[in-house]
Design a protein around this nucleic acid. Sequence first.
DNA 1: TCAAGTGTACTATAACAGATAGTACACTAT
DNA 2: ATAGTGTACTATCTGTTATAGTACACTTGA
Lengths: 125, 125
Amino acid sequence: MFQIDRFGRVPIYEQIISQTQRLIASGVLKEGDQLPSVRALSQELSVNPNTLQKAYSELERRGICVSAPGNGRFVTVEAARIVGKGFLERLSEIQQISEELYAAGVPFERVVQTIHIAYGKEMKG
Amino acid sequence: MFQIDRFGRVPIYEQIISQTQRLIASGVLKEGDQLPSVRALSQELSVNPNTLQKAYSELERRGICVSAPGNGRFVTVEAARIVGKGFLERLSEIQQISEELYAAGVPFERVVQTIHIAYGKEMKG
DNA sequence: TCAAGTGTACTATAACAGATAGTACACTAT
DNA sequence: ATAGTGTACTATCTGTTATAGTACACTTGA
């Protein structure tokens, strides 16, 4: 369910956060679903439980999941809505990169083509 | 000429690297231009000379600039070509983010609009 | 010639974030 | 009761980044 990159610059706990959010955004995880326990996931990923606790605490702080001590940790009702709001930040990332490509002389159509591919559409021509 | 963010995750020396490349990609720095000396730039930015040396060494390793000991450090002839090749990586970044936005239900047109803005074009409608 | 400015090399240290190890306790379902 | 949850805490290890300080070689130009 989760895939960890131990060599990149992004810390493990942030990878857990963003991957969880992505699973919710894409509908794989829905409201009421139980998240893997810190102990189980720590074994599966060979990661320290504290690291996962850190990730889950942050997700909880954001209102994306809630803990039921002794029971488990579950996706909230508002999770999808909250995660959805993050798209504005990602759009600004795209804008920033596009500005650099523009400055470097990469044609407009070349960038749009990339979006087409991501959205699984065919290019005309 | 350079702008340093001391709080982000990206180390200073990498900021110098990418900003130098951006200046070359956008044509501000051209073949034969002299780069600021490690000492001068270290004063201007309040950064340790070693940090800048590290950045410049990497730029040199990439063939983007060359050092003339006792004289200075200059942009190479191939710099623009080498830097230009980096656009493929940035396009794949855009593609990756777009795939997430697609999964999250953000409409295609919304992403393309962002590219329009970056390229300084007006949206039809 | 010599001073000033360039690049280069090296060691040592400080500072910080990330991750781990280990332990302990409270809660809940069965 | 037992096993599985979450939670809290301290201590430690590690790697990266950045700094400090010093020394040396080279080139330019007054």
